[in-house]
Design a binder for these strands. Structure first.
Lengths: 117, 117
DNA sequence: GGCATATTCAACCATCCGGTTGACGATCCG
DNA sequence: CGGATCGTCAACCGGATGGTTGAATATGCC
């Protein structure tokens, strides 16, 4: 009965993985480039990336021999919502939340994506 | 080198602990009462509470032989800030989500009328 | 073909985690 | 005092986690 929140929060609980996510904010990256700033074996980083992908926080797409890692911010949103109003995470509300996100997306698509300040 | 975020996210990664936090939203509770709905030994729950306290998510105060557990929502703030600093996209807009829910409710009310008497 | 690059796999290791049970220290109450 | 209640401690267990190394698999390049 491992909830999606379990894997997301567990993935976020590691500083290396949080650092990776922060790096991916900048841009998509290849596995080797993700690993470069860390004093850790490439295989170790590869495992961390697999965990992040398992939590849905990133996706990986192989082009040629390079596997590109891409941030998936939506996975964070569910966790963020839980934190802000934890308690109201019954399935009903999750469904509603998904509909909400879709509605929001459509709105974003038709309106200006940023309300900059 | 364990960051505060490490312990907070790790604490949130367990469904039992999230359920406990949700229960504490209602009111402060004694350890025994926290444990009551779970099919788990009291010692097990006591450990979970210690982890939550270690992460600063709750505080515990002993009055008489009863130890009261109190939610500390501020501890969530750092994690929440981290997650939101994350998205270039707007932070999750809970207000908008609530308006969405209300709008949906009204829609349900007008679309699926009771054939009442 | 042959070599370098990119990434994962497999095995292994130490440590942590979630859980149990049983004993123990406090505290209330009759 | 003596017994019941509240909660933790200590030891233990199986399984997950975070890391390593070395071999293996793809892919690109000359």
């Amino acid at each position: 009965m491992t909830d999606a929140l379990d894997t997301v929060f567990a993935a976020l609980a590691d500083p290396t993985r949080r650092a990776i996510l922060t790096m991916l904010l900048e841009d998509d990256m290849a596995v080797t480039d993700v690993a470069e700033p860390f004093e850790m074996s490439l295989a170790g980083i590869s495992k961390h990336l697999a965990i992040l992908a398992g939590a849905g926080l990133i996706t990986q797409e192989k082009r040629g021999r390079v596997k590109w890692c891409k941030l998936e911010p939506d996975a964070l949103r569910a966790a963020s919502v839980w934190m802000q109003g934890f308690g109201q995470f019954e399935p009903v509300n999750l469904d509603a939340f998904e509909r909400f996100l879709e509605a929001e997306l459509q709105q974003d698509a038709t309106e200006a994506p940023f309300q900059g300040d």
